[in-house]
Design a protein around this nucleic acid. Structure first.
Lengths: 218, 218
DNA sequence: TATTTTTAGTGAACGGTGTTTACTTTTTGA
DNA sequence: TCAAAAAGTAAACACCGTTCACTAAAAATA
């Protein structure tokens, strides 16, 4: 590793890149990928649209960076809960519930992170650099580790394959996150339907999901 | 009810409307909403783009009809399984698994049905005609009925609220469907990762989800 | 320092999108 | 038959992502 990893030119470049990303983040958080247009973005930072392409090869690439740093946020939060010293059932429940909470705080980010470019199109998940190294992959590994711990502790059924169970749980929590993101009133199905609060429902769902794994010491 | 509910003019109109929808369906199934453009669609049926607007007020309205009839397909299939005379656990498992299977057979339809117009934007779910009357709503009611039956049979825990549990299960199955739709290799996370087949995973997941509701007669 | 080379930035264009408007042609119903 | 309604259209509007040829500035080299 060299002592000075960046020339002044390089630092200047990164600064402008960051400025573009910051402006993009603001718009994206409010209006999503459709609302974020290169032309509007360029106007926001007083550049020509073509200038953006000196820093990002496409709109997709730009948005991909927003998504990746969003999953870094999720990972941080999930990790924080995973390292708590609370009893296993609560800890695992809060862990997956946190995933949904953070996800739904930035609905456009979360939806875009999975909607990717297209159904049947390969998202960043099985991209070249490898799923394992992506923030999404790291978050998955935390979950798998937690399930392995549960099996070792005897909380979960012994025959459970942690990798498989992790995918199942991930899918379940993903589903809830997507529901909340796309149905504003969820868990109410109609705007006026009386029901429990969203927070309570997330906890209930997480509980339900963890319960599916548990051993029943009769 | 009048004997002849449609004039020749009206029937002719419906025929053209149907022709537009059929052409749209074909393109949509292969390329999704983005790939379906009014201009291309018009060319396919030898009309001008503006002509489409004599039959549909917007592209969204057109796509909404595709989505609704897709959920009719889901509903039919789920209902068929729900009416089977197999034991309760298998029946309920197959019921929710079928939802995922049909969903993933038309990935663009399923994704679009929930992605709707926007996160935080109200989809057809809490639209004016009411969720209950939509095909999506009817499918939900089937699920809730099934859970109620499970509680009555003593298969599920007595304290379970069928409506709440139905939402939880729906979310879980929705999550799996979305995973499969957006990650082509799922349940493999990388294209070459060895894992169980998709069919097996759907069954496994459905089983897991039903398990979360079950009473444990220790 | 002078000069070459690389980079930053731009205006204009290409090909695409959904949608509207003014207009013409066809069909319908009295 | 003839007015009214509906079907259909060409052209335009206002967007979009992206590319290209070009100029201005900065950096690297001699």
């Amino acid at each position: 590793m060299t002592a000075t990893v960046s020339s002044p030119a390089e630092r200047r470049r990164n600064k402008i890149r960051a400025r573009i990303l910051t402006a993009a983040e603001t718009v994206f958080a409010r209006e999503g990928a459709e609302g974020l247009s290169i032309r509007r973005l360029a106007e926001n930072i007083d550049y020509s649209p073509a200038a953006i392409y000196k820093y990002f090869s496409s709109k997709d690439e730009l948005v991909d960076e927003l998504k990746e740093s969003f999953f870094e946020l999720i990972l941080e939060n999930v990790n924080r809960i995973a390292d708590t010293a609370t009893p296993f059932h609560e800890r695992s429940r809060d862990c997956v519930a946190t995933y949904v909470r953070i996800a739904t705080e930035k609905p456009y980010h979360y939806a875009a992170a999975f909607t990717g470019e297209s159904p049947a199109g390969d998202g960043p998940v099985d991209g070249e650099p490898g799923f394992e190294s992506s923030k999404k992959g790291q978050a998955f590994n935390v979950l798998r580790g937690m399930i392995r711990e549960g099996v070792d502790l005897g909380e979960f059924r012994a025959e459970i394959d942690p990798a498989l169970a992790a995918k199942s749980i991930w899918a379940s929590m993903h589903g809830l996150a997507m529901m909340i993101v796309h149905i504003p009133s969820f868990p109410a199905l109609r705007p006026d339907q009386p029901t429990i609060s969203r927070e309570e429902f997330i906890t209930f769902h997480a509980d339900q999901v963890i319960r599916g794994l548990e051993a029943h010491h009769g």
